[in-house]
C-alpha cells in the first residue's frame, strides 16, 4: 500500500466503552464544555481557548478523498489540513493575537460554530471520554453577502482535570473534499 492509498480511521471506535447517557451529569458537563469552547472561539478569545488544550494535544483535520461506496469508511488520508500538536497550536494563536500583521483574519471573519449530536463514551482511562459531535460552521467576512460553510464530525478525547476539561485529541472529519473556504485561519 502506498502512503496515499493508505487511509486512517479517526473515529477510534475501539476506544469507546459504555456510552454516557444524554442528560447525565457527565454528559451535561461535556455539552457545557463544547458550548463554552465554541463561544470562546466565536468571540475570538483565542488565548482562553488555548488554555483548554492539553500539553499532549493531537489536533488533526485529515484530507478527505472521494472513494467508491465500498470504501466509504476509508475516505480519510494520512495528510491533513491541520496536523498539529500543542506547540504548533500555541504558535498559531500567538500569530493571531500578538502581531498586527495576521492578514488572513484581519479584518476578522464572523464565525458561528453550531455544535450538536453529541455522543459521549467512557474509555479505559478514568476521567477521559471519547466524544463525537457534529459541527456546522458559518464564516462571513468583510462585505460578503454569503457565507463560507463547513460541516464536520469531530472525534475528541476530552480529559477531566482539576481545571476542567482539556482537549487531548481532536480529529476533525470534514465533509468537503475540496474546501470552499480559502484557508483555515480559524479553528474547528
Amino acid at each position: 500500500m502506498s502512503v496515499t492509498v493508505d487511509t486512517n480511521i479517526y473515529s477510534r471506535e475501539e476506544q469507546r466503552r459504555d456510552e454516557v447517557p444524554y442528560g447525565t451529569a457527565v454528559y451535561n458537563s461535556i455539552m457545557t464544555f463544547l458550548i463554552k469552547e465554541a463561544r470562546l472561539l466565536d468571540h475570538r478569545k483565542l488565548v482562553e481557548w488555548g488554555e483548554l488544550l492539553a500539553q499532549d494535544l493531537e489536533y488533526k483535520a485529515p484530507v478527505r478523498v472521494t472513494r467508491r461506496v465500498q470504501q466509504f469508511d476509508q475516505e480519510f488520508g494520512t495528510m491533513g489540513h491541520f496536523d498539529d500538536d500543542h506547540n504548533s497550536m500555541m504558535l498559531r494563536i500567538s500569530r493571531l493575537t500578538t502581531t498586527t500583521n495576521a492578514w488572513s483574519e484581519d479584518p476578522a471573519s464572523r464565525v458561528r460554530r453550531f455544535v450538536s449530536n453529541v455522543s459521549v463514551w467512557e474509555t479505559d482511562v478514568a476521567d477521559e471520554y471519547e466524544v463525537s459531535s457534529y459541527l456546522l460552521l458559518t464564516r462571513n467576512r468583510a462585505e460578503a453577502k454569503d457565507y463560507k460553510q463547513l460541516s464536520a464530525e469531530r472525534n475528541d478525547r476530552l480529559r477531566m482535570t482539576k481545571d476542567g476539561f482539556h482537549i487531548a485529541r481532536r480529529s476533525i472529519m470534514l465533509d468537503q473534499v475540496v474546501l470552499g473556504m480559502p484557508n483555515f485561519a480559524i479553528f474547528l
Partner: peptide, 21 residues
C-alpha cells in the same frame, strides 16, 4: 508533514495570508 502543514497550504501560518490576498 506536520511542519509543512503548519507553515503552508490550507492552515499554513505563512500561506493563509496569500489565499486571502
Amino acid at each position: 508533514r506536520a511542519a509543512a502543514t503548519s507553515g503552508t497550504g490550507t492552515s499554513g501560518i505563512i500561506e493563509q495570508d496569500d489565499s486571502d490576498t
